[in-house]
Design a protein around this nucleic acid. Sequence first.
DNA 1: CAACAGGAGCGTCAGTAATT
DNA 2: AATTACTGACGCTCCTGTTG
Length: 417
Amino acid sequence: MDTLVEEQNSAGITSSQPTMERATASPIQPVVCSGGGRPAGVVSASSLAPGTQVRSNGTILLMSRASEKNVVTTVSSTTQAIAVPQPGGAVSIVHVSIPSGTQPMYVQSVIQPNQQSVIQAPGGTGLQSFGKNVILLNKGSVIHSTEGDGGVHPVQLITTTTKGDGSEGDGITLALGTGEDESRKRREILARRPSYRKILNELSSTEPQGPMISLGVGSSVEVKEESGTGGDSSSQESDNSNAMASNTITVAGTQYHTAQVVPASAIQLATGSQDSSLQGLQTLTMTNAGTAATGTIVQYAQGQDGQQFLVPVTLSATDLQAYQIRTAGMTTNTGLPQSVVMTPATTIQNPQQLAEETSRRRELRLLKNREAAKECRRKKKEYIKCLENRVAVLENQNKALIEELKSLKELYCQKNE
DNA sequence: CAACAGGAGCGTCAGTAATT
DNA sequence: AATTACTGACGCTCCTGTTG
């Protein structure tokens, strides 16, 4: 783990973060976190504001044009961001202060590429004070706000009927949920089964493909999805870093493309039916650029009776190769790959066929279980990362509160003297 | 440099929860 | 009730760091 430095911003938010570049964007800058092997692209400030400091430890502290003390005080002032990216996609801690109404809105977040992220809004302000600003989250990200009672309240995801084009569609609205309901629901689910997927869903309640979250005026937060893949549903089966190449952060009405927030992934579409023996079989291979060793096959075939088969399978590179070899080599007289297509129960004519069928089913089951185990482990790691991130944020919050208490005590003592 | 320990990742099995 | 999905546990391999 990298060395952590501590720094307290003007908002009183203390953060522990890797000793990497730190930048505060000048007027309305996109928050850009690097990851997935991309260069450590920090907040892409086109020009540095007066007061910008480059520190000896490599830290860059950019000052707002509106205020050199990083305080945003008016609606027309600037939006600031401090992003701390790290090569290899490790933890990045981001501070964002967004002007909204008469009060500045400070957000502290820990963002990891392809990992759960935690974005906190301090008490009193609430997420609704974002106005029309937009925050981009990675898959499984967490947004919660601390209310006046000091408790942490999760944000609830509510599906709406608003599409990006304004028509009725599949947009999602974030709204502050009631803490008791959410915690009770979470406890119930945890009591049933410690499913990492469900826990994460409960924790994050975010869209898996890098949703664009528009934090609208009022108590709701609108989430839009800007899909770079044309909304192919099959792509949603792939890794969470897929289809993230074209995300946009909109701050104060200005849109910024944030390809660096999550590493862009390549989705290769190819028809795998060059082989004449595989007539009617279409293969869609989705390759994640970040983890090029894996791919997802979605095979579609149409039998002579018009029956259609669809088999999505996520495979490693080795599996992929073996899979393609196997399917090519085991075509039946109907031209369909016997080991892939989920055909209705066929009449077993002899023990050899029975054995083959049993073997095939076992192979398929093992393949599925293998992939399920991988997914489960990935979820488990994400879950652990998410918890670690939350611990980091809460620790920072705790430190800030301790500091605040300390200063208030000092102030009180001085007044009494 | 070889031997060893420890950690991480993987595949498989089995049991259970969730879904159909 | 049957099927599917999820996950703990186990054993294995590979890699890295340490030790003699």
